[in-house]
Design a protein around this nucleic acid. Structure first.
Length: 422
RNA sequence: GGAGAGAUGGGUGAGUGGCUGAAACCAACAGUUUGCUAAACUGUCGUACUGGAAACGGUACCGCGGGUUCGAAUCCCGCUCUCUCCGCCA
């Protein structure tokens, strides 16, 4: 969440930033925040003064009791009742102000970086990079949802039977190529300096709030209500939350982690003809990279992560483009996001396969993730990116690499899966 | 699931009503000494809110929430979590 002090000192910039993110009630909400904050501080000042008086009297009484001056002590006791009543009242209203302030702050998205383009819809994202030729497919080329049946490598009907729509069963070479992709991505991440972690895929509500999925995306996560745990929509949640309530020292930085996890998304209300096959799933596999950086280094780190993802797609030989997301299309918690889209030749469509973001101090503020500089504690910046999400990469490989004789496996994967053709 | 124990600062751990935001030790950081390393010595060493240009103050926090009291880490109640043993189990 945004820092109160920042909003106080930069009211106009905050409002303008929120508008660029198409936050509807920018002006109204910021004013409300400042108003409640004012009341809160006044109340706190009054409460502190009251408590200070009480503390002083209590000390006096203590001293008198020791000296055996009971009568004098009793006399002072009489004065404390009013203070006590007053401080109780003040405390109550302070709590009210604090919680409404907190609730309000939770509803405010992060502010966009200055380089974020103006715009509201995905059409207004800016294409900043494109690489690779569109493959020329043979006459009988098919979209991946037909290829997977032809080669019997992914079975949606079986998944439907076991779980429901959007839970595919990978079989034989389909399963092995998944495993190959996971190993390839993890190895690449390790080579780039990311320490591998294996994390829980069910998380508590505090973790959901820490990275901002809650309360914003409550309905997007599967919720195991019996134990009040959420299935993660991305490894970002458990990996970043490793550092919740942590104060790092300067030599711990930078933190770079990579982790493979399944991801679960309810995708309520987002199904249609364009989300056939692997294009959208309730459960999918993803390798996530996460960085925790000093504020002054975070944009350099973002660049580094973009380069890493570029490298993966290049090695897989897939045509892709990079979009700089506009303010209206960016995520709730992000300050700057680059989306990677891979070209899936039979569908003749770009498919989002990675999203790399800098959250600046937004998540860190919720997480209370800080470090010490010159004796002062300061919020860190968090970043993450998919490197990569599997299903759409697999869709593109299947479609782009299909030939009448079979599907060519990218050569970098062959050592991992042990075959070069499906 | 049954029984028991516990939750204090980065760690270990003392503290059963006021002089305790909290002993001691360890770790960490800075300095002194020193051919190097090590050791020794000295100092610093929680977080948040709030007032202040700053210096420096105020308040809160010893798992969480209530209560008793002039005063609570310390007493009472509720909750959560952790650990140990037994049972079950990948």
């Amino acid at each position: 969440m945004l820092q109160l002090a920042y909003i106080r000192d930069n009211k106009q910039a905050t409002i303008e930033g929120l508008k660029r993110k198409y936050f509807k009630t920018a002006e109204e909400t910021v004013n409300e925040v400042l108003e409640i904050d004012r009341k809160r501080r006044d109340t706190q000042a009054e409460l502190d003064a009251t408590l200070a008086k009480s503390n002083l009297l209590a000390k006096e009484i203590g001293g008198l009791m020791k000296e055996g001056k009971k009568a004098e002590a009793e006399a002072i006791k009489g004065q404390t009742a009013d203070l006590k009543a007053l401080s109780k009242d003040l405390e109550e209203s302070l709590k009210t102000f604090e919680s409404s302030l907190h609730d309000l702050l939770l509803t405010i998205p992060n502010l966009p970086h200055e380089s974020v383009p103006e715009g509201r819809t995905p059409e207004e994202n800016i294409n900043i990079f494109e690489q690779g030729e569109f493959p020329v497919l043979h006459e009988a080329a098919k979209p991946h949802w037909e290829l997977i049946k032809q080669y019997d490598i992914i079975d949606f009907d079986l998944g439907n039977k076991i779980s429901g729509a959007g839970f595919p069963v990978y079989k034989g070479k389909g399963a092995k190529i998944q495993r190959a992709l996971i190993n390839f991505f993890l190895n690449e991440a390790e080579a780039a300096g990311y320490k591998e972690v294996q994390v829980p895929i069910l998380v508590n509500a505090a973790s959901g709030y820490g990275t901002g999925q809650l309360p914003d995306k409550e309905g997007q996560m599967y919720h195991a209500t019996a134990d009040d745990l959420y299935l993660i929509p991305t490894a970002e949640v458990p990996i970043t939350n490793i550092y919740r309530d942590v104060i790092l020292s300067e030599n711990d930085l930078p933190v770079k982690h990579a982790g493979y996890t399944p991801c679960f998304r309810r995708e309520a209300g987002s199904w249609g003809a364009h989300v056939r096959g692997l294009n959208r799933l309730h459960q999918f596999d993803k390798i996530e990279i996460v960085q925790i950086r000093k504020p002054e280094e975070s944009y350099q780190a973002l660049e580094e992560m973009v380069e890493h993802v570029k490298g993966l797609l290049t090695k897989l030989g897939l045509p892709f483009r990079i979009l700089r997301l506009c303010g209206g299309d960016m995520g709730f918690t992000s300050a700057l996001t680059f989306d990677f889209e891979v070209y899936s030749a039979a569908q003749e469509r770009w498919l989002e396969c990675s999203s790399v973001s800098n959250f600046e101090a937004y998540q860190a503020n919720r997480l209370k993730l800080r470090y010490k500089v010159d004796g002062k504690t300061q919020l860190l910046h968090t970043l993450n990116g998919s490197a990569l999400a599997l299903p759409r990469i697999l869709a593109a490989i299947l479609e782009n690499n299909q030939t009448p004789e079979g599907i060519k496996v990218p050569s970098v994967l062959v050592p991992f899966c042990g075959f070069d053709t499906i």
